[in-house]
Design a protein around this nucleic acid. Structure first.
Length: 271
DNA sequence: CGAGAGCGTTCAGTACATAC
DNA sequence: GTATGTACTGAACGCTCTCG
């Protein structure tokens, strides 16, 4: 029995994340950070080569995985690449144990991983608009995606039962996703970075009439931070309710994104 | 426009663990 | 003990990009 996930995908995800942070980041740079040869990494990612248990531990360490993630990663490697059948079986059994132990957390993480790209939410909203067409080419063009991305997205959304197809038309099931709150997972970070990139693009691509970008730079006291964060959440909820009220007697015809950032501008984050 | 740097990839060779 | 498979290394290739 094969593990559900391949360690190769974990490595690819980390590389992709670093590339988002730094567009000049490369496979070679990643290999340098992991302290392995670029040729080695290239072949690992292309599935032409495996990883030894020693390397797996070293990579988990350099990726700064926590104890559970590290254990999961090394067992994934062992389950695939251990030389002896005995070691592969042991690793496989360990993976089952880890899976049962963290089943709920894993489910939430897996769910968010599937929708960690910005366009999943955008597609779900686009479906509710008046001009929506259940045509992958039209959807791809509307959101600036490739048809392959749209194909994959709809396959996942159908699997997650977030949408259904009746009479050749996509319909939202209205099911809300319970994504992990406050968990600094790679998926959530990736989602936020993609949205920020979209916001940056809107500065040059969209007219002032189409968008609203505003910034407030302000000095605060750190003990007020929880109250201020709560206020932002309240505004977001109020904004959402207002939109819902406005759409009581008409259908939406645009998909917009409201993204708020409130963050520390000081390089030294210690008080 | 040429030089140099960096990129991803392939390939030959080596070392070592496992299977028989 | 030997054959086999494979992780790993380093050299090299062709390509792109940047800089002077």
């Amino acid at each position: 029995m094969q593990p559900n996930e391949h360690y190769r995908d974990i490595l690819k995800e980390h590389l992709e994340f670093r590339k988002i942070q730094n567009t000049r980041y490369s496979l070679r740079a990643f290999a340098r950070d992991l302290e392995i040869a670029p040729s080695n990494l290239s072949e690992i990612l292309r599935g032409k080569q495996g990883i030894s248990p020693q390397k797996a531990i070293q990579i988990a360490s350099t990726l700064k995985l926590n104890k559970q993630e590290s254990e999961y990663f090394t067992n994934l490697v062992m389950a695939h690449d251990a030389r002896s059948k005995k070691d592969r079986n042991i690793a496989q059994r360990n993976l089952e144990k880890i899976k049962i132990f963290s089943e709920k957390k894993q489910l939430q993480e897996d769910t968010f991983k599937l929708i960690s790209d910005w366009y999943y939410y955008a597609i779900l909203e686009l479906i509710t608009t008046s001009d929506f067409k259940s045509n992958h080419k039209w959807i791809a063009k509307t959101l600036g995606l490739t048809t392959l991305e749209v194909d994959e997205a709809f396959a996942r959304l159908l699997r997650l039962k977030l949408i259904k197809k009746t009479g050749g038309q996509y319909i939202s099931t209205g099911i809300q996703l319970d994504t992990t709150h406050g968990v600094p997972s790679l998926s959530i970070k990736k989602f936020c970075q993609q949205i920020l990139n979209k916001a940056m693009k809107s500065i040059t691509d969209q007219s002032v009439d189409e968008r609203e970008l505003s910034t407030l730079t302000v000095a605060i006291h750190s003990e007020d931070l929880p109250v201020l964060k709560k206020k932002i959440q309240e505004f977001r909820n109020e904004f959402d309710r207002l939109i819902a009220k406005k759409l009581e007697n008409k259908k939406a015809n645009k998909v917009y994104c409201l993204s708020m950032q409130f963050f520390n501008l000081m390089e030294n984050k210690n008080d």
